[in-house]
Simulated assay, not measured.
Amino acid sequence: MSDANAITYREGCRQAIRAALLADDRCFVMGEDVGKYGGCYAVTKGLLEEFGPNRIIDTPLAENGFVGIGIGAATAGLRPIVEIMTCNFSLLALDQIVNNAATLAHMSGGQFAVPVVIRMATGGGRQLAAQHSHSFEGWYAHIPGLKVLAPATVEDARHMLAAAVADPNPVLIFEHVVLYNEEAPLDPAVTEVDIDKARCHRTGKDLSIVTYGMGLKKSLAAAEQLAADGIDAEVIDLRVLRPLDDATIVESVRRTHRCVIVDEGWKSGSLSAEISARLVEQAFHDLDAPIARVCSREVPVPYAAHLEEATLPQVSDIVAAARRLVQGS
């Protein structure tokens, strides 16, 4: 690595899990292939050897079962980190997540806390076909009782987990599959990050690009291309999908007066639709152009590389949407 402080997103996730295990004996990891195999994306590699099979627990391919065990362990006072191989498979545990984890604190009148963290890979771009490539984080962001995080940077991958483990309520963390190999310097002075607020990664005056996860990298690349055309784009990383940080989004759009939302989910009933609605409700008179949305095509994600690329939001799509807003208004 060219920078002594540079690590991969994958290593950031691994360091975060290891630090959580070292900090709290109540913390353990469970999921498919997290032990001997080292995790489907090698995030838990080496942890079984260090912490043993009582704290790094390989499970059967039975999401409804092991997620339920994690929720039960959390209500009993432990701090489980549950890994689901891909968010597509989380649908097999939907009853546990939505009807149990999200509701127990409310239905018990606050007698039970559910401090479970559920990590899962999301998104397309690695030719893993439809059953491993969809983006369901917007679905979970619909559910009261859950906190939904989407780390888009190495720094967030490294530091979001500690705050999630400390949260008394269930936290879902969506890690984009293409980001695992991304590398960036890690500032040793940063020891924690906010899991409540969005973050502005690039200031601008002509339009706001609002995104999360893999969309951040593509949006920053689009902003650089737009700058060459004299279009100054601000880039906002949501980071937290539930609860949404309305204040940061609205404040940005009130200054730039235009907005492009980049969301790898499908457009219909999406997180991008929710953000659009909130901007209309809170900043309608500040808009100088219609809100634009760049989302995935409304088809199952294809296996073939050229079709997958055509299905997912790309830098060129973001650039085209931004140009239409600025040059067409």
Results as ranks from 00 to 15, higher is better:
Asn5Asp: 15
Ala6Arg: 03
Arg10Thr: 04
Arg10Ile: 01
Gly12Ser: 06
Gly12Cys: 02
Gln15Asn: 11
Ala16Lys: 01
Arg18Glu: 15
Leu21Tyr: 05
Leu21Val: 02
Ala23Ile: 03
Asp24Cys: 08
Asp25Glu: 14
Val29His: 09
Asp33Leu: 07
Gly35Asn: 07
Gly38Gln: 09
Cys40Trp: 09
Ala42Gly: 04
Ala42Phe: 04
Leu48Pro: 12
Glu50Ala: 08
Glu50Tyr: 05
Phe51His: 09
Ile57Thr: 09
Pro60His: 03
Asn64Trp: 06
Gly72Thr: 03
Gly72His: 03
Ala76Phe: 00
Pro80Gln: 10
Glu83Asp: 15
Glu83Pro: 11
Met85Gln: 15
Leu92Thr: 10
Ala93Gly: 11
Leu94His: 10
Asn100Leu: 05
Leu104Ala: 07
Met107Trp: 09
Gly109Cys: 01
Arg119Asn: 10
Arg119Phe: 02
His132Ala: 05
His142Lys: 09
His142Ala: 11
Ile143Pro: 13
Leu149Ile: 02
Ala150Lys: 00
Thr153Gly: 11
Arg158Leu: 09
Met160Asn: 05
Ala162Arg: 08
Ala166Cys: 07
His176Asp: 14
His176Cys: 07
His176Pro: 12
His176Phe: 04
Val178Tyr: 00
Asp187Met: 04
Ala189Pro: 07
Asp196Phe: 03
Ala198Arg: 06
Cys200Gln: 13
His201Pro: 06
Arg202Glu: 11
Thr203Gln: 15
Gly215Trp: 06
Lys217Asp: 11
Ser219Lys: 07
Ala221Asp: 13
Ala223Ile: 01
Ala223Glu: 11
Glu224Trp: 01
Ala228Asn: 09
Asp232Pro: 11
Ala233Asn: 10
Glu234Trp: 00
Glu234Asn: 08
Ile236Ser: 10
Ile236Phe: 03
Leu238Ala: 13
Leu241Gly: 13
Leu244Trp: 03
Ala247Ser: 11
Glu251Met: 00
Ser252Thr: 01
Arg254Phe: 06
Ile261Gly: 13
Val262Ile: 02
Trp266Asp: 10
Ser270Leu: 02
Ser272Lys: 05
Glu281Val: 03
Gln282Ala: 12
Asp286Ser: 15
Pro290Thr: 04
Cys295Tyr: 00
Pro300Met: 04
Val301Trp: 08
Ala304Cys: 06
Ala304Ser: 14
His306Ser: 14
His306Ile: 08
Gln314Cys: 09
Ser316His: 08
Asp317Tyr: 02
Arg324Trp: 07
Arg324Gly: 08
